[in-house]
Design a protein around this nucleic acid. Structure first.
Lengths: 246, 246
DNA sequence: GCAGTGTCAATTGTCGACAATTTGCAAAAA
DNA sequence: TTTTTGCAAATTGTCGACAATTGACACTGC
């Protein structure tokens, strides 16, 4: 393992070498692994695959009509995302989200998002603020008629926009990882918030503080907002845990 | 994809069902994937495999005396850790750490470790404080005679202990991810700190503030310490970038 | 009945082979 | 000379098969 230095760079994740027409979409890559991973993820998030249930490679490969190889890779991908866990020689299992996990995730989110907000307060553009405003409006709209899943997705989007506004890509990546993990649990939570309208409302103080570029107020608002969400989720979760199995 | 709910739980990561003799060690599983991943990691961190260089499955499998399958899995594992990147149909390449990446990582570390420290200030035990003290002493000892790599490893350990003292496992996991990524770059940095003694010294204020349980002082100390490290690393890194290739 | 042992089906870990795609190079066309 | 086209080698994506291990069940001896 010595001499090696082939490809100059990788041109990285920018598909910007396109003096092309700009007319065509990149054809939907057959990419088995991605498709399989997406389907398994969907099954987990929707609750069709319950936490703790086993994933056998052979069965999955038969369902997808492929060999075991791409299924294995997809499972490993999901493992790195925290959606499934694996045990040597025993296979893959859908991740179970313990109360302790949820506590840790929310406690971490406080530090992460407060930091993101404080970075954003100096960097955020008017355009990004408008985007956050529209996001809250979307949540209000869904509060009356949308499904719970949709509401949660839009909530995730709001917080993701906030993290993105920090300008720190690595931070955003951590948020995405946490969001993916949390998606494991949302299928369990039948009704999350007593009032979806209230959920939308609680985002307003964050946006206000951003508009005013008031760092202290912003930090407090973000912290308060996440703690409130944490309280509801933890309570609801322990309530579900109390009643064992359907 | 419907009925499935096999294994009850997983008994998770506790190997505490041992009414055994307590005499034997668990035999080191041959586990090819882990061994391969470890060797590749070692090669990357030590600098034998330079950033941007290509990893071909066939060549690696020949070197390790295995088939391509375990090599693939190991590479995917390393990809999830951020040590390598992959491009469809093109294969794996050793991750290149851009100045922007380093900036993001350190900026994130500030938020992460300040948060960890503030959580730890209420939770940390005397025993853990002693452990941190010994860690600093170890750094002093290595400052005079140790290799640069050793010093950096001990520095990582200190910060890891701090994150662990937060009591938040998910936070610790994020730190580990960041540490792994940073290891990509340390091979490039020939001499990191002008004075290794200085490196050890700068940890003292953090420990002092922890001892006094002074939250404000602690936050400031952690922030200052990381910013100082960031300054040195970024400067050194851009200096290296200026001079293209050996 | 119970602790321990042997056996067997199910499943994962690993392998070698083939198909599909990319890349580099050379030849042909402008 | 420069650009395009065509080909060939190298490499990844996928597959089916076999070996190794696990977990469950039945069996034995007490």
């Amino acid at each position: 393992m010595d001499k090696q230095a082939d490809h100059p760079e990788m041109a990285a994740a920018n598909g910007d070498d396109e003096p092309a027409t700009g007319v065509f979409h990149t054809i939907s890559s057959t990419d088995l692994v991605t498709q399989i991973a997406r389907q398994i993820t969907e099954a987990i998030v929707s609750g069709n695959l319950r936490p703790g249930s086993r994933l056998t490679e052979l069965q999955l490969s038969r369902e997808f009509g492929t060999s075991r190889a791409p299924v294995r890779e997809a499972a490993r991908l999901l493992e790195s995302q925290g959606l499934v866990v694996s045990s040597p020689r025993r296979g893959f299992f859908v991740r179970t989200l313990e109360p302790q996990d949820l506590h840790d995730i929310y406690e971490l989110r406080i530090g992460l998002e407060v930091h993101a907000a404080l970075l954003a307060v100096d960097r955020i553009t008017e355009h990004e603020i408008d985007r956050l405003q529209r996001q809250i409006e979307k949540m209000y709209a869904l509060a009356d008629e949308g499904s719970l899943e949709q509401q949660i997705m839009e909530d995730f989007t709001f917080h993701r926009l906030l993290c993105a506004a920090s300008g720190n890509r690595r931070l955003l990546k951590v948020y995405d990882e946490l969001a993916t993990e949390m998606r494991c649990g949302i299928a369990l939570i039948g009704r999350l918030f007593d009032s979806a309208h209230r959920l939308a409302e609680t985002h307003e103080p964050v946006l206000d503080a951003l508009r005013e570029r008031d760092a202290d107020k912003l930090a407090a608002a973000v912290r308060f907002h996440i703690v409130e969400a944490q309280d509801q989720v933890v309570e609801l979760f322990s309530e579900i845990s109390r009643r064992p199995k359907p």
